[in-house]
Computed example of a mutant assay.
Amino acid sequence: MRKDPKKLKIKTIPSSNHRNTNISNELDRFKLYFDLVNDSIIIFEIDDKNIIQNVIDVNTVTIERLGYTREEIFERNNWRKIARTIFRDFEQNSEFFNENNSVVFDSIAYTKENSEIPIEISVRGSTIDDKKIIIVIARDVTERVELKNNLLIQKEELSEFAHTSAHNLRNPLIAINGYVKLIEKNQNLKYLEKISQLTEKMVKMIDKSLQLADSGSVLGVLETVDLNILMKNVLDTIVPKDVNIEVSELPKVKGNPTKIQIIFENLIENAITHGNASLIEIKNKTSSEFHRISITNDGGLFSSEARETAFKKRFTTKQNGYGGHGLLIVQKIIEAHNWKIDLKNDTKTTFLISIPRI
């Protein structure tokens, strides 16, 4: 059983001594620097077996980051919880806490409310007033961990994307090669039209591939975008004459105009090409906080299974339309703008985009 932590002995410096007054000022400055550091600092007392016995001091950042009051953090149950979590992989490795030995490792800190904070720990042992201590500096590495996780996801997506693209492009290339041989054999130029259709299909695949590759979190300079003007450009470009379009007044939003255009191009193109829609309605409802833009079409409905996977990678459903990379591209651009998109599938198919007001 561990002994109760001993109280630290504090030497009193006589105020009449000028030299001691300077020391006091230096200690005050040190304490100020201690609290201004942007990393959490905790000083623990350890025994001869390098087992943590007490917490000696913490800086202000530690208190703010973990959500305790200063009084709470000095309570035995609380500092033991902190020590157990950040040193959980090193409790049996007491050599790490030897004097003048230092170690750096990644760990997790838990707040008072049990929220996780990824941290990088730097530990160094020392001795002060015959007491063995360890100085723990904890740096919040949440952004670094998120970046690492995003890179791993992107690497996986890139690998899958490369294999899918290679497969999708290989089939029309094989077909083109077959038509070329038929032309050489039969001298029949009717196969040129087939070749033209296949090459057009490949160009569209490449365009979608480039959109997907460029649909990530980097938006560049954000601009105020008038969606009325942008939507007119989209509709003039991709909507055939036999499809009816109804558009209400649309808002101005903040974002990357090129990528926003890609969102609407993909949603409308999917409705026409894969959903066989004859009517597309584009409306907006504005609340105190959000613009909610709906794109509704009368084409084929999603099955319940397809609805769950509509924005997932490799989603396709030729039977109900909306196949390929289009909706994944839309989802990535929406996320990059910190917007939200939902799919409603009642009597008609509706994509609902929620955009914060500027």
Rank of each mutant, 00 (worst) to 15 (best):
T62M: 00
E26A: 12
H325F: 05
N101H: 06
T317D: 15
I358T: 14
N256L: 06
N77A: 14
G299V: 05
V136A: 02
K252P: 01
N320Q: 10
Y191H: 13
I358V: 12
L227K: 05
K318A: 08
M202P: 04
N266P: 01
E45K: 09
E45P: 03
L173Y: 06
S122Q: 08
R139G: 04
H337L: 01
A109L: 15
E269W: 11
Y68Q: 14
L328C: 10
L147T: 15
R19A: 13
K208E: 15
R357K: 15
F302P: 01
S248M: 02
L66S: 02
D346H: 11
S24L: 15
S159L: 13
L301R: 14
L279P: 01
G255F: 00
A310D: 06
E193Y: 04
I293D: 01
A306W: 04
D106N: 10
S294C: 09
A166Q: 13
I73A: 05
G323R: 01
K155Y: 12
T309Q: 06
F290T: 11
V55C: 04
N233P: 00
L182P: 07
E113V: 10
G255D: 02
D28C: 07
G324R: 03
N297W: 11
E305M: 05
V180F: 06
S196Q: 11
S304H: 10
R88K: 13
K208N: 09
I41K: 00
E146Q: 15
T85R: 07
N186V: 04
S102R: 12
I133C: 06
D47E: 03
K332P: 01
N233H: 09
S15Q: 08
F44A: 01
T199F: 08
I355M: 04
S196G: 07
L328P: 00
K318D: 11
W79N: 06
E64P: 02
L212G: 07
D4Y: 04
N100S: 10
P356N: 09
S159V: 13
N345F: 03
H18K: 13
L36C: 10
A109I: 06
I56V: 15
V218H: 12
T349L: 03
K155E: 14
F351I: 05
Q261F: 06
G255I: 04
F44I: 00
S107T: 09
H291E: 01
S215I: 14
I63D: 06
R88W: 06
S287Q: 08
S115G: 09
I333P: 02
E120D: 08
K201L: 09
F315K: 06
L173P: 06
E156H: 13
E116F: 09
E249P: 00
G326Q: 03
V37M: 13
D346L: 10
Q53H: 09
L267N: 10
I43N: 06
T142P: 01
Y179W: 14
E289M: 07
K312W: 10
Y33G: 08
A213P: 00
N22S: 12
S126C: 14
K204Q: 14
F351L: 08
R70P: 10
Y179N: 13
Y191S: 02
K259D: 06
R2C: 01
N284H: 07
K7A: 03
